[in-house]
């Protein structure tokens, strides 16, 4: 079989960016989504419920630059209750979805509030729990309408264009879909979260194929939360409950599984150096201990370097994979070795 003889791609770990910052400031707390601007700036949504400044969008780059943040907890203009998704529009504006307020807020490139739109409901154009945003090459906005189990195509101003999907487990049906992405030819990939699969659609929403079954083997998923596709057509799936990112080629041939291997970021290093007792104890710290559980979530809770609820995946302009490692308040970055 040709697929058997094909060599698989290799994923190299690059770096970790981040630091737990629950009251705001440099770092993230419970990041849930990110968007990479063409210039490489990474916009990260933190969804920390414990502090009014914990909910916000932080701006950084993957070489540890920090450029500030915007937004806070609340339902006023430019504020968020339960932000879920972020995307950059073709005009460089920033769009953030809030699944509690059922609204999309539009910011200038520097994070100044501009406008918002969104109406709760299930009629065309109304939304119930927007969970992912992506712009098409034509400048339309795809919104994953989570509780309505459909994908809606809207204008950047919130006018309804079209939609597809309904509740269920058949082709083109969804069970609480979460993340989505488009490939270079405009095909749409949806993380069909509670159906444990990824569905692929034409740019117009025609079902093409789907992949994945429930489980923890190769090519199986347990609640996939997000999907990203790179320029080579490789598909990256945040396999959320399984605590890994799986990589497939465009024909769904399994390529790699990443478990996470975070290192100490410069922000973290600065923190440790201010706390000599912790720095000292950490010098004797073995991050990869043997654990007495098989439950992946629990393993991740005990092994700091692993992903713990990897929630969102994006590809940056250089083709690097950025994984939002939500419960560890950081991004882990990988690079595909070109074949």
């Amino acid at each position: 079989m040709t697929t058997e003889t094909r060599s698989k791609i290799k994923m190299n770990y690059v770096d970790t960016v981040g630091f737990g910052a629950d009251i705001g400031g440099r770092g993230f707390h419970l990041p849930v989504d990110l968007s990479v601007r063409p210039d490489g700036r990474v916009f990260v949504i933190s969804r920390s419920p414990m502090h009014r400044r914990g909910i916000r969008v932080g701006i950084c780059d993957i070489t540890h630059g920090w450029y500030g943040e915007f937004g806070s907890d609340g339902d006023g203009d430019g504020q968020f209750r339960s932000p879920t998704a972020i995307a950059h529009g073709p005009d460089d504006r920033v769009y953030v979805a809030d699944e509690e307020l059922n609204r999309i807020t539009v910011f200038t490139p520097d994070g100044v509030f501009e406008s918002n739109w969104g109406e709760s409901g299930s009629a065309p154009g109304q939304i119930n729990g927007p969970s992912a945003l992506k712009f098409t090459a034509d400048g339309d906005l795809l919104v994953v309408d989570h509780h309505n189990n459909r994908i809606q195509k809207m204008s950047p101003e919130g006018e309804y264009i079209s939609s597809w999907g309904s509740p269920g487990s058949g082709e083109g049906e969804f069970n609480l879909p979460w993340g989505l992405d488009l490939d270079s030819s405009g095909r749409v990939y949806v993380a069909d979260w509670r159906n444990d699969r990824i569905q692929r659609f034409s740019p117009d929403g025609e079902f093409i194929d789907m992949f994945g079954t429930h489980g923890d083997g190769e090519g199986q998923f347990n609640r996939p939360s997000d999907v990203a596709v790179d320029d080579g057509g490789f598909i990256y799936v945040a396999d959320w409950v399984n605590q890994r990112v799986q990589v497939f080629d465009t024909r769904w041939n399994f390529q790699a599984s990443l478990r996470g291997q975070a290192t100490v970021s410069p922000w973290a290093q600065e923190y440790l150096e201010a706390n000599a007792d912790e720095l000292d104890a950490r010098s004797r710290f073995n991050p990869y201990i043997e654990v007495d559980t098989d439950v992946a979530h629990e393993v991740s809770a005990r092994v700091e370097a692993y992903f713990w609820d990897p929630i969102a995946v994006e590809i940056d302009p250089e083709g690097r994979l950025i994984v939002a490692d939500s419960l560890r308040h950081r991004l882990q970055i990988y690079q595909r070795v070109p074949k």
């Binding site: 009251i23 705001g24 400031g25 440099r26 770092g27 502090h51 400044r53 923190y271």
Partner: peptide
């Protein structure tokens, strides 16, 4: 509070 300024101390 909270004065727990592990980050962004100057502003907070």
């Amino acid at each position: 509070g909270s004065f727990d300024t592990h980050t962004d101390e100057v502003a907070v």
